[in-house]
Amino acid sequence: MLRIGIVLYPGFQLLNLAITSVFEFANITARERLYEFVLLSESGGPTLASSGLEVITRPFDGQTFDTVLVVGDNDVMPATPALTDFLRASASTARRVGATCTGTFNLAQAGLLDDKRVTTHWMHVAKFRREYPRVKLEDDRIFVIDGSIWTSAGATACIDLALALIEKDQGIDLARLVAKKLVVYHRRAGGQSQFSAMLDMEPRSDRIQKALTYAKRNLNTELSVGELASAANLSPRQFSRAFREEIGQTPAKAVEHLRTEAARLMLESGRHPIGTIAKDTGFGDPERMRRAFLRMYGLPPQVIRRERRIAPDALLKT
């Protein structure tokens, strides 16, 4: 049985505790106690979350764990000396040390991340880079693994991190079954963007919004600047200037992002040949789609498909 120490402190973000459900369902699915997770805090006892709910914790008392994870909060509160000491000690005794959301700041404050690749919540990237320039922050990743250091982005990315831990420990089949029972995708690839392409585009004007909506509905066509400008009732020159001002990127780059996201969803939800997906999403050929995937997700389509394969029906009967 592997012991997981989950470190909390006053003001922690409650959503981070979703990781406990992932380990709980690993035990339920395997029908044996693969994991014991222990909620820890500096003094033990009730620990208040940012939402006002209290969680009962055990104190730091010299316990050792296979894995230690420190959770994040809403305001990037500095770690106390006791928390920093505990994380440093854990780095020398635990097989893995990690963080969810802004918990990455606590690991950095403890001096555990210099020259390491990590991620954190996208809202706090600038602050992290200012304070910890020696850390290799990958600011648009769901989770990052660098040796014994595991870190995830904000909010629900902690679930992806926990599923990745289970996959590493117990194998991909169990991780898939746990994800299915939790009614989530089998974990998103660590290299996947923290953002949805469409959600990340927030036009101020109805005209640019119309162009984006038109693009999303017609991804299998060429989608030239002239075509998008016509949908927005603007000249190509006016459209290109307005689009870049409002979206912060060229129409061509925005269309590539929409195509890539649509292709990824097709990869995850079906068994279409990659060539068919490339054609239906407007890439035209698999190589062009592969290059776009590498730019956006850091992984080629084949790898993303392999990580999303549906488990055989026999494995689902638990």
Score class of each variant (00 low, 15 high):
V68F: 10
V68L: 12
V68K: 07
V68S: 07
L69R: 04
L69I: 15
L69F: 14
L69C: 11
L69S: 08
L69T: 07
L69P: 07
L69M: 15
V70Y: 03
V70L: 03
V70S: 02
V70G: 05
V71H: 06
V71L: 10
V71G: 02
V71S: 01
V71A: 03
V71R: 03
V71W: 02
G72Y: 06
G72N: 04
G72C: 04
G72A: 05
D73Y: 09
D73W: 09
D73N: 14
D73Q: 03
D73E: 09
N74I: 05
N74T: 10
N74V: 05
N74S: 12
N74M: 13
D75N: 12
D75Y: 01
D75A: 11
D75I: 01
D75L: 07
V76P: 02
V76L: 06
V76H: 01
V76I: 11
V76A: 09
V76Q: 05
M77S: 11
M77A: 10
M77Q: 11
M77R: 14
P78N: 07
P78T: 04
P78Q: 04
A79Q: 10
A79L: 08
A79M: 08
A79N: 07
A79S: 15
A79R: 05
A79F: 02
T80W: 06
T80D: 09
T80M: 07
T80K: 05
T80N: 08
P81N: 11
P81T: 09
P81C: 09
A82S: 15
A82K: 15
A82C: 07
A82F: 04
A82M: 08
A82W: 01
A82H: 12
A82I: 02
A82L: 12
A82G: 14
L83C: 14
L83H: 13
L83N: 13
L83D: 05
L83F: 03
L83K: 14
T84A: 13
T84P: 06
T84S: 15
T84R: 15
D85A: 15
D85W: 00
D85C: 01
F86N: 02
F86V: 07
F86M: 05
F86G: 02
L87S: 10
L87F: 08
L87V: 11
R88L: 12
R88T: 11
R88G: 15
A89D: 12
A89Q: 13
A89V: 05
A89R: 12
A89K: 12
A89E: 14
S90V: 06
S90W: 06
S90C: 10
S90G: 11
A91Q: 06
A91I: 00
A91H: 13
A91E: 12
A91G: 14
S92A: 13
S92T: 14
S92F: 00
S92C: 01
S92Y: 00
S92I: 00
S92R: 12
S92D: 13
S92E: 14
T93M: 03
T93A: 13
T93F: 00
T93Y: 00
A94D: 03
A94H: 04
A94E: 03
R95G: 14
R95N: 11
R95M: 09
R96V: 01
R96C: 00
R96I: 00
R96Q: 04
R96K: 13
V97Q: 04
V97I: 15
V97Y: 02
G98E: 02
G98T: 10
G98R: 03
G98Y: 05
G98L: 05
G98M: 06
G98A: 07
A99Q: 10
A99T: 12
A99R: 05
A99P: 10
A99F: 09
